[in-house]
Design a protein around this nucleic acid. Sequence first.
RNA 1: GGGGGCGUGGUGUAGCGGUUAACAUGCCGGCCUGUCAAGCCGGAGAUCGCGGGUUCAAAUCCCGUCGCUCCCGCCA
Length: 603
Amino acid sequence: MLKTHNCGELRIGDAGTPVTLAGWVNRRRDQGGLIFIDLRDRWGITQVVVDLEAAPAAHAIADSARNEFVLQVQGAVRIRPEGTANPDLATGDIDIVADEIRILNRSRTPPFYINRDEGALDEALRMRYRYLDLRREAMQRSLLLRHKTVKFIRDFLDAEDFVEIETPILFKTTPEGARDFLVPSRLQPGSFYALPQSPQQLKQLLMVGGFERYFQIARCFRDEDLRGDRQPEFTQLDLEMSFVEREDVMQLMEALATAIVKTITPEKQLLAQPFPRLSYQDALEQYGTDRPDIRFDLRAIDISDIGGRSAFPVFVENVKAGKKVKCMRVPGAAGSVSGTQLRKITRELEALVRRRAGAKGLAYITIPVDPADQLRGPIGKFFNVDLKLELIEAMGAEGGDLLLFMSDDAPIVQASTDALRAHFKSQLDLDDNCLAFCWVIDFPEFIWDEEHRRWDPSQHMFTMPLPEDLHLLDSDPGAARGSQYDLVCNGYEVGGGSIRIHDRAIQEKIFPLIGQTMEHAMQEFGHMLEAFEYGAPPHGGMAWGIDRLVMLLAGAPNIREVIAFPKTQGGADIMANAPSPAEPQQLSELFIELDLPPEELEH
RNA sequence: GGGGGCGUGGUGUAGCGGUUAACAUGCCGGCCUGUCAAGCCGGAGAUCGCGGGUUCAAAUCCCGUCGCUCCCGCCA
């Protein structure tokens, strides 16, 4: 080894020990005859002192060294002179008196700061020099946290008798519904592998294979547009168990989530334990989304009964037509604002729901701080005194609150709820130290696809309907609920799973409902159906988005911060310049000819 | 495919019709033996992403384009 100790471990007790350290020049302070070098490695920073008189050769090298030079320093640990200790540094009580310094490698001046936590830095620049970006403390911390999280998961599941098994990357289309990445086969010209969108089929087949408890830290691929929480390749904790019911999986997964937070990030607070459970229906009705951020309690409450008895024609007619009237209480939003400000705010909110949700409008009233005052707002006059009291009671409203009303077709009300919540969330400055997990359950087995006039699996085609809803597959598939469960944290879907179909007869019922011909199903998934005929055990499992989980644990704003080499929103790696055109010879070996539209050819 | 934001010395920002394009930091040189975001002195460094237009005059206004990013669509 080129070093005897790391840069984070030496303490007062090591005084007098001869040591060799190696690392990067984090910062250099030249005092003339005395040069201080903060030497940095993965474990920390140790101050090296170079004295012109005591070690002239080392001093000359220290004089020429610059930031990010790689140095090897020989010297002795010394307790720092009285009054010069640095309490901000773990090694701040000592320094290394250098006898000899060797330059292991030089460095050009880096294109950005590595030795300070600069708030905003152009991401394209960071990506272009990702290897330098990775040297920054924040990135080191993120990836270390990621390692610890995955290590903990492995140990936890190992202790629960799970077996880690790898599955192929070159495979076949998997049923998640996203666009596949294709890989042409040279040995079978004209045929293509698909990269797995998840190991879904394979883990089910491992259950048929008798492993009973499987897991994998699996790379998955989906060729869809990127987001802050979506990369085309991402990492799942994939796991599957045999002979379980929904509750068994949920219990174990909740224990895992709790243990991860308590062990890896004990400073984080779990908002609620056990994790609250919401039905899909309730989540949509109250939060307008199936992945609610329950750190804040703005919810849409159904007040159709009250609205229907008001004198406001829109509410009365909508309720008559079977539509709902929903109300969202925004505490204090109208308390200390002028009438002009209030009109401005509500106009903006109305524009928001028109644009984002296609709503026709957004009615509101305000609750006066002084109970003697009238309800303000354009529709206040449609509520008589008794009805007002009833409304205030139903909403738990207090003086200074703003009440927002939505009444329209359910999807518009839901989208409005979601848009309004997103708007207020951005103003709330929510605590990232709080992790609000919840389960969303009782998803519909299918969601109607108006464009293709067919049912789409709300999760995937192998999800078992709830036992009590099985009969609905024939009579009313839209009403059938799946055995699916999603784990949501702070508004992100961090995981999801279900009990799977292990019965060929049930599986065969699904295909025609989702518009798959039996012929096509046999071609793509015949091996699954066949497997179900050989003693497939009842089984179920879950998949976790590791990138999202670690992002939340790290308090990072997006998953790129917890991925060593992420892609840009355009799907590119701007360090390595991928993707890039293939050599003509590579293409001809694969019998592939390009047929690009004219504008693409110019590049 | 659509909408929004950003793009100015190496980096982070200011300037938003007429400036010698400003500030901080970094970089280079000098001084300095207890600094730790070291300090002091001096210096170099920008055709304001790119292309076009409007104007007597464009970093600034308009159009297009490229890159990064946020969102919708898409994706569980």
